[in-house]
Design a protein around this nucleic acid. Structure first.
Length: 477
RNA sequence: GCUCCCAUCGUCUAGCCUGGUCUAGGACACCGCCUUUUCACGGCGGUAACAGGGGUUCGAAUCCCCUUGGGAGUACCA
């Protein structure tokens, strides 16, 4: 049997990073078993679901490099892939359950429902304790009311029995029945409810495995009950540990950047984001931390999931981005830079050779490519900084000598019409200053840096001097 | 209330299933030191954890129970 794994988001906002992690595991797991990766859109909440979000999610997945084999944008023979387009199927199956007496119509108005819930709560009972008021209504009478046009929902007749299942992450999980009552499967507006369509779809789409966040663990009870009612086989579930924020609560918008889109906009490397996300709740068999997640497809070890919630730490993500940035080829790094840099960046007007050199000098200083803009801006900045360290360096007694010598050298170059100094040349200057004038160590390097760059600190001196146009260098003297 | 899940350094985690090799390993962060000289990179080193209590056992981070703490759910949201 073909392994089919689905990712089933609701298009109610931009793609959340937690969902991206789930989808990543879905994909790796499916591919490691030669299976298929299916996208299903769970848009039965008409108020909140928007087509534009579906599109935005697809874009985000494309950016991440997570590719679906099937979905609304790529229909195969298990469609349609949007739940809103499968309503007839759900209705039909809900009615089938009614005819089998496994579900029943319920005519409770929302006011009555609230009243019953309050009553149950007052009596310290489960909120759903009285929701089964219409459970034993005579079917003929029920039909008469339905025909008459009374508003109704379909409730599942909960057999109230203990159920258990085996989870890929948690092992055997057992539920006792009083957790839920006779729950609704079809709303008054004719739309089905999550737990119902999820079951119908996984069944009809022949899904064999599904990864989802731990918050869904309790839903398994209702879903198992429904699978049994349909006499259908339940997919194997893996309930992943949740992603939490600083306060150890479920990661949400108030914790900061939680959508893939935000990282895309900040020009993180998708490979780095996936790598980091992958290690939240799963560990590499060889304890490797920097790797290409797609290499995992070869023999993915699904037994290495961690059960406890993982705290999302942006500092560590930044470290991963830094590592992936450094691992990029010259060509890829340049492409990444050009994509991220603002239009007006001075970097853009430079020759290719200069750009590559600049990247190799700055590479080690950046966690994010966007920092390059700031770094290069300093190269072209005329005048000097006003920080303490700079003033101090300029006040040393050796500094004027350095200044005088270098200025003369720069002018020589200038009159020869050379646009840039070279690293070798800067090295020669330093050697001259050291040997002939006896200046060394910090006074030499920081002094020269202050004169040449107008800053007290920065990346490799030779490197950045060689990257700065001669006229800018001269402007600082 | 009830149900379910979880519990190793500040954080992500390895180890737990198949008790001894764990005076608990790695990574992020932090702090030192070193590196033909500044900065950075790199290298080396350091601080830092088995929630608590009972068992079982010659021996427990590892198995069992309880307590505590945290989280999730108990919707005509997903």
């Amino acid at each position: 049997m073909t392994v089919r794994v689905r990712y089933a988001p609701s298009p109610t906002g931009h793609q959340h990073i937690g969902g991206a992690r789930t989808a990543l595991y879905d994909l790796i797991f499916a591919k490691s078993l030669g299976g298929e990766f299916v996208l299903r859109i769970e848009d039965t909440d008409q108020e909140r679901s928007k087509l534009e979000y579906e599109e935005s999610m697809l874009e985000d997945f494309k950016w991440l490099g997570l590719e679906f084999d099937e979905g609304p944008h790529k229909p195969k023979n298990h469609g349609p892939y949007r739940q809103s387009e499968r309503i007839d199927l759900y209705k039909e199956l809900a009615m089938q359950l009614v005819s089998e007496n496994k579900a029943y119509p319920c005519f409770l108005s929302s006011a009555e429902l609230e009243e019953l819930t309050a009553k149950a709560e007052g009596e310290k009972k489960a909120p759903h304790a009285y929701h089964d008021k219409y459970a034993s209504l005579d079917p003929a009478e029920a039909k008469a009311r339905m025909d008459k046009g009374d508003e109704y929902v379909i409730r599942f007749r909960n057999p109230q029995k203990e159920v258990k299942f085996t989870d890929m992450v948690r092992g055997e999980v057992k539920f006792f029945p009083d957790m839920v009552g006779d729950f609704v499967i079809l709303r008054a507006n004719g739309f089905p409810v999550y737990n119902f369509c999820c079951v119908v779809d996984d069944w009809k789409m022949e899904i064999t495995h599904a990864f989802r966040s731990e918050e869904h663990l309790n839903n398994s009870l209702r879903q198992i009950l429904l699978y049994e009612a349909f006499n259908a086989k339940m997919p194997t579930f893996a309930h992943l540990s949740m992603l939490v924020g600083e306060d150890r609560k479920k990661l949400s918008k108030r914790h900061g950047a939680t959508s893939v889109r935000q990282y895309k906009d900040q020009h993180y490397l998708p490979a780095a984001l996936l790598n980091y996300l992958c290690l939240l709740g799963w560990s590499h068999p060889k304890e490797q931390d920097i790797f290409n997640v797609f290499d995992l497809v070869e023999g993915f070890d699904a037994s290495r999931f961690n059960k406890s919630p993982a705290l999302y730490d942006i500092q560590k993500l930044n470290f991963f981005n830094e590592q992936h940035l450094r691992a990029l080829s010259e060509e890829d790094l340049l492409a990444h830079a050009l994509e991220a840099l603002p239009e007006e960046s001075k970097f853009r007007n430079q020759p290719l050779e200069w750009q590559n050199k600049c990247l190799s000098v700055f590479k080690e200083k950046m966690q994010l490519i966007t920092e390059l803009d700031e770094l290069t801006a300093v190269l072209f900045k005329e005048g000097a900084s006003d920080e303490e360290d700079y003033k101090e360096a300029m006040s040393w007694e050796t500094t004027p000598k350095i200044q005088e010598y270098i200025k003369a050298e720069l002018q020589k170059l200038s009159s020869a019409g050379t646009p840039f100094a070279t690293e070798e040349l800067v090295g020669e200057w330093m050697n001259y200053l050291k040997k002939e004038l006896g200046i060394k160590g910090k006074p030499l390097f920081m002094g020269a840096r202050a004169c040449l760059t107008g800053q007290a600190h920065g990346p490799d001196l030779k490197g950045i001097v060689a990257l700065t146009p001669l006229e800018i260098l001269l402007s600082r003297f």
